[in-house]
Simulated assay, not measured.
Amino acid sequence: MKTILVVIACWTLVHGDDSGCLSQGGTCQEDSLQCSGHYVSGLCTGSATRRCCLHGGTGSSGTGSCANVKIVSRSEWGAAAPKSVSSLHLPVSLVFIHHTETPACHDAASCRSRVQNIQHYHMVTNGWADIGYSFLVAEDGTIYEGRGWDRVGAHTEGYNSRGIAFSFIGSYSGGKPPAAALTAVKNMIQCGISLGKVTSGYHLYGHRDVNQTSCPGDALYHEIQTWPHYSHTKP
């Protein structure tokens, strides 16, 4: 009996509370292992490579505030392995909005290809460790996992270790993204709060608020200024 109790105690110390994954019928494991469904970040404790394998294909990324978020995992869109990984100190209090300034994508195949191309550009042309954004969002509201909740990104110079970034796939200077995409990002931020990845009192910024850039485009920038957590004060 003593031996069994010691084993259970050690498991708890190492793996903590994986209830976010387990409550959905998922399994927390190293993402180098085969997953019969798809991987979702942010639901398992431990290293950034220990992720939740949700069985049965693409679906929601969590319970409660996460139930209405559809995420395509890195393995599903065919991400290349990162050159290196740095962990974020969570929860973060800064959320940045970008656009990719590429053509938009309109179906699963074209969106997967677009995200792959963005990752290739970031890693090969820019020489970064991985795709820069935390998450990318298609016009239909589907979220594509970039570096995810737990990893430091390469999206907002000077603030990468302090926040996460959502990038809308497309160019939004002349018109804002469809309602489905805007709603998806709002829901995803709430999901992050419920998972303990984002503080409830977070501050929202456009990329141009902190760096010399026109990103995320005039129309999208004006839109996010109407969102409740948008901040006019530079962090």
Rank of each mutant, 00 (worst) to 15 (best):
I143T: 13
Y221R: 13
A67I: 01
A81S: 12
L136I: 02
G127D: 12
G196T: 02
T12M: 15
Y202M: 00
S113P: 01
A109M: 01
K197G: 00
G20S: 15
E101H: 06
E139T: 10
I97Q: 04
I8G: 04
T12D: 06
R112D: 08
S47Q: 14
Q34A: 11
I193P: 01
V152E: 15
Q29M: 15
T183S: 15
E30D: 09
W149A: 03
G153I: 03
I118F: 05
C52V: 07
H120M: 08
I118Y: 08
I224Y: 10
T226R: 03
S23T: 13
S194V: 08
G163L: 06
Y205S: 12
F166Q: 02
A154I: 03
T199N: 09
S75H: 15
G20D: 15
I164H: 03
I189Y: 05
A67D: 14
A104Q: 08
S113H: 09
Q34H: 12
E101I: 00
S60K: 14
I131C: 06
P103M: 03
K186E: 14
Q29N: 11
R51S: 12
G217T: 05
D218M: 04
S36Q: 11
W77Y: 14
R208C: 06
D140Y: 00
D130C: 02
V95S: 04
H222M: 01
H89D: 13
F135D: 10
G59F: 11
A179M: 10
Y221F: 14
I97A: 04
S171Y: 08
T63C: 02
S61A: 14
P91F: 04
A184L: 14
I4D: 11
S41L: 00
R50Y: 11
E223K: 03
S60T: 12
G127P: 10
T3G: 05
H203K: 15
S19P: 01
A154G: 06
G158M: 09
S86W: 02
S86K: 12
A81T: 11
T125G: 02
G62I: 12
S61L: 06
G201M: 03
S32W: 14
N117F: 01
G196D: 01
S86H: 08
K2D: 13
C215S: 15
Y205R: 13
Q29Y: 01
S171G: 12
H122I: 02
A138I: 07
E30Q: 04
Y221C: 04
I193C: 04
E30R: 00
T233W: 04
H122F: 10
K234Q: 10
L43W: 14
